[in-house]
Design a protein around this nucleic acid. Structure first.
Lengths: 187, 187
DNA sequence: TTAGGTCTTAGTACCAGGTAATAAACAAGG
DNA sequence: CCTTGTTTATTACCTGGTACTAAGACCTAA
């Protein structure tokens, strides 16, 4: 590779660092056949931080994102809860929840919000979802603030029947009915 | 803080670095009232890498995890697909998919696997889930390898009716029926 | 042709956060 | 008293940079 024009090089640089932030300036310099100083100037002009900063930022943001869907028991923020009866959670749809091509939120995020809220309101040390009936009423887009309301509508033995409805600012966008099994008393 | 016994210090050090890997040796030294060299010896003895390595490892592992549930269009690995008709994906249940307290996989992972597979087999540039009916048959535990099979059972206009069944090694553990709407032709 | 501008490269000093190796101080036990 | 474990200090070196100065390369307009 040789003597690319500056603008082209900037494009390549930006793209390279997006899908592999672990490059050092030295590697980039070699691959683009320019000096390290040129790469540094480029990064400065493009506002791209140094390797260590990039990696640190990834580690930090990844940490919080993982917390959101992996580590917590409730997806979204629990606003209000009345154990054994009802609960409310909110979640804001961020860039990484939507399908790039269409800008529509992936369905399993709403499912996750509704499902975890349903499980949270069960007054038992452990509970499992048995059945879910889900209806996606409207597509949901980035930036929308989703409010989920859950309500226990019937309880029979260790089975709970729970309705969850999710609204955005204007209207109902999702609803689900869960049958949740409490594991408190035997199996 | 002063003059802790060595073993105690090791415990604290390990714990501190687990829930905040961003400490430098210098900070740790100050907080534990020992010299930097002592911290370095401790790390060496405990096999804990330096700050930059820790951060790099986090960034790398987080990257792959995020790809799994955020960036890819299919949760799990797509093994086989016959557009407009059927598809198969597999997913292995890892530690971070289970609820620590019970060791049972969170329900929305199976939902995500089934739902994304259902969407993937639709032969259209974009599709949305309209309705989902889900049954969790057996609890699923860490390490299980889940095979999801999806099949389009009916198509009416831009609506597809899809069955997805998930099995572990031995038996069926989950099934779902989705009604998926293709956005290809209008709205 | 020449002066001025932009790009690129080189070189130097400095920094954080380490590794590696050596040596010295100190306490405690037998 | 000597040995042993633990801690601290010191020094040389490493990577992947920042910040700054300076000089050469190349193009363009007067």
């Amino acid at each position: 590779m040789k003597a690319l024009p500056k603008i082209k090089r900037h494009e390549i640089l930006r793209e390279r660092l997006i899908n592999n932030p672990f490059y050092t300036d030295e590697q980039l310099a070699r691959e683009l056949s320019v000096s390290i100083q040129t790469i540094r100037l480029d990064r400065a002009r493009l506002g791209i931080p140094e390797l260590r900063e990039r990696v640190k930022n990834m580690a930090r943001s990844a940490e919080s994102k993982l917390r959101a869907i992996d580590s917590s028991d409730v997806v979204g923020d629990l606003l209000d809860i009345d154990l054994g009866s009802r609960g409310i959670s909110v979640m804001t749809v961020t860039q990484d929840m939507v399908i790039d091509r269409t800008g529509v939120a992936r369905g399993y995020y709403m499912f996750a919000q509704a499902n975890t809220l349903a499980l949270a309101i069960i007054d038992a040390p452990a509970a499992l979802t048995g059945v879910a009936n889900v209806k996606y009423i409207k597509p949901i887009y980035k930036g929308e603030r989703l409010v989920a309301k859950a309500q226990v509508i019937r309880q029979r033995g260790n089975k709970y029947f729970i309705w969850v409805k999710i609204r955005n600012e204007k209207e109902e966008v999702f609803r689900a009915k869960f049958i949740v099994v409490s594991l408190a008393s035997g199996e």
